[in-house]
Nucleic acid binder design. Structure first.
Lengths: 162, 162
DNA sequence: CTTGATATGTTACATCATAACGATTATCAA
DNA sequence: TTGATAATCGTTATGATGTAACATATCAAG
């Protein structure tokens, strides 16, 4: 599994691919990727980082696509529910999914210096956590896994990523 | 490692032990466990569940120990920094540590029905997540691991825990 | 005593999120 | 086509969570 986020890459292409994947998925599953929802996904893909709901809303407002918080939260709820975006609990923010095709258990690497976020994959439920849950009689349905630390750039003492 | 949280146990004793451990730790490390901080820890131990900062503040206010949000947040910050309590990101709430002595990487099992929380232990940084981080050049300093699912009682179709 | 570090009290505000309700649009069976 | 139903959107209002900033108080060390 590829960990996308810190290294340089072709933003234009990864945006294009994610949008295509979302459209294909919605077509297959009869989901309604409305202009509003599609635009919010685009904004997340263009930002290519964790963004707050109000930051997204500011853009929507500038474009005449909605001015009130529920507009942004509804679109984000659709995107998260269908796996096109994820919520980063630690940051109270949202980020476009970079593994749109894979059925996955996302995990995130969050830089505490510059707030850059990389998505990766982990299945904690298979290891110690799964064993502990089983022993406690707990049924895991979903897992929030967010590692906090320093991204490569900030470790190198370079200027923060942004 | 014992997973504490869902099963019945002696609350009075576990509160006593956690307070003793906190006092001993503070004495050893010259930390100032002020009445306010101590009381917030007691409130968390008595609640024995994840509690919001404002819920804690309500109790402090009733007792004349502080009325404004920073009072609660400062005490919680002290407790979290020193490992006597943890923040549950998924719930924006705080819970007393149930493994006060062990140097640990806490992980939590959160019931989505009744919001009960059990603390357990996991070291995701040793498994897939650690490998992914290393490959990405990311240095993990801390990890948020929160499994969401159903606790034993709610699985059994019993009335929710609370 | 004075100085510096720590802790507390308070105001004001910033940020994140949702309930509720009405208007509109899409869907589809009759 | 039409009427019923569900999904989506627009808006108001409010709730919930969290912090910046500054004044005051306490206390240990020089």
């Amino acid at each position: 599994m590829h960990t996308l986020g810190f290294e340089h890459h072709d933003h234009h292409r990864c945006k294009r691919e994610a949008l295509d994947a979302a459209e294909a998925h919605c077509a297959r599953h009869r989901l309604n990727l409305t202009p509003q929802r599609r635009r919010v996904l685009e904004i997340l893909l263009e930002g290519h980082r964790a963004m707050g709901a109000y930051e997204i809303l500011d853009t929507l407002r500038d474009e005449g696509l909605g001015a009130q918080p529920p507009v942004a939260y509804r679109a984000l709820d659709f995107l998260v529910t269908n796996g096109f975006a994820h919520k980063i609990e630690r940051l109270n923010a949202f980020i476009a999914c970079t593994h749109p095709d894979a059925t996955h258990t996302p995990a995130f690497l969050i830089c505490r210096i510059c707030d850059a976020v990389a998505e990766t994959h982990a299945e904690p439920a298979r290891g110690m956590l799964g064993a502990a849950a089983e022993a406690a009689g707990f049924e895991i349905e979903q897992a929030v896994v967010e590692a906090v630390g320093r991204c490569p750039r900030c470790r190198d003492g370079a200027a923060p990523c942004r």
